[in-house]
Simulated assay, not measured.
Amino acid sequence: MREYRLWSKFIFIAGVLISGVLILQMGLYALHVIMHWNADYNLIELCHSMLQSFGFSFAGYILQAVVYQTFFLLVFIVVKQAVQTRKFAGKLQACRDEAWTRRLNESYSTARGSITVIDSPEAVAMAAGVFKPHIVLSTGLLQLLSNCELRAVLHHEWHHAKSSDPAKTFLLTLFASALWYIPILKWFLRNYKIVREVLADDYAMRRMGTPAELGSALFKLLKGGVPARLPMSHVSILDTSINYRIRQIVEPDAKLRLSWPLAPAIISIQVAAALCTMFVIVLY
């Protein structure tokens, strides 16, 4: 699993770094436009030497539109997430099954996150919460799985909770949505989810000592259908790549093959170069 952990770190760091640099540059540009504050844009010095003599008047308008739209989306998505998380917390309290919640928290006192059981016929198992991840299960899930299968699912979700996967996934989702014109960020998000699910599966199988219970649980959950996705940030055992993960359980020696995103990378480089060019034209 070392390869998967390396992929996970690479994808997350690369996604955050690319997004952070672009957002920082846009922030400096916004300060330049609004407050007439001059700054050295080191990332575009190379472009500057070639394009300093150009003077395209439309570049400033395009750049302002991109920058303002990006910051609007960043704020909108964060506020929307906060509102939806607050609503979800209220719904959890309203349909919380106190008896099952108390029983599971007493039975699994070593859990790294608190367990909440909700009264719902759907099979729900997820790690939710950006700042304080906790595990949410449903009574439908408890009725569907055996005790051993339930333990395997709990180990899977504990791994997500202790690794802060809901927060990391939300951060990559935020960047991929706000910087929608950088397509490689969507590739990072999609493959990060796959790798994290595989790592959580591996953790559950190692804790159980066998893949049988997790595989059986996945088959039962898949047969019951994938529940509707919730709007707030969470990571569910049925989130993504179920078929691949079942194959990984059946054939543990099979390796995850992530194809390099050549087309998204080329488009992203072109877009970044265009933004760099416009920064140079406007600021110099």
Rank of each mutant, 00 (worst) to 15 (best):
L6H: 10
Y68T: 12
T240C: 09
R151A: 13
V83F: 10
L51P: 00
R245E: 12
V21C: 10
V235E: 02
L63E: 00
V280L: 05
W158G: 01
E197D: 11
A167Y: 08
L218Q: 03
P166H: 03
Y284I: 02
Q248S: 06
A212R: 06
K87D: 07
K162C: 04
C148K: 12
R207I: 04
Y181V: 03
A204N: 03
I266H: 06
L199I: 09
V280Q: 00
L142H: 14
I62R: 00
L172D: 02
I184N: 01
A176M: 08
Y61A: 05
L22F: 03
S8P: 00
A212Y: 05
K91F: 03
P227W: 07
V117E: 02
D201L: 00
R102G: 13
E149S: 12
D201S: 04
L31C: 08
R206H: 12
M1L: 05
S164P: 02
F170K: 01
L17N: 06
T240Q: 09
L262P: 02
L51Y: 01
L46R: 04
R96C: 09
A30N: 09
K91L: 13
K220A: 14
P227Q: 14
L144H: 07
L141R: 05
G27V: 13
A111S: 15
C148A: 14
D97G: 13
I118Q: 08
F188N: 05
L238Y: 10
L221G: 01
T70G: 03
L31T: 08
C47Y: 01
S241D: 14
G209N: 11
I11H: 00
G224R: 07
L141C: 10
A99K: 15
V198I: 12
V66L: 13
P252A: 10
Y61K: 11
L179I: 13
T139C: 13
H159A: 10
F170I: 05
A128V: 14
C276M: 05
K9F: 10
P252E: 11
W37L: 12
W158N: 07
A123W: 01
A167S: 08
V130S: 04
G129I: 01
Y41F: 15
I118A: 09
Q93S: 07
S163V: 03
M232W: 07
R229D: 14
V195Q: 01
Y4H: 06
E197R: 01
L256K: 02
M126C: 06
L137A: 09
L6D: 12
S109N: 09
Q270W: 14
R247D: 12
G20Q: 11
K9M: 07
T210C: 09
T240K: 04
A272P: 02
N191Q: 09
L142R: 06
F131K: 15
A65I: 15
I269H: 06
H159R: 08
E197F: 00
L28W: 12
K80D: 09
M26Y: 02
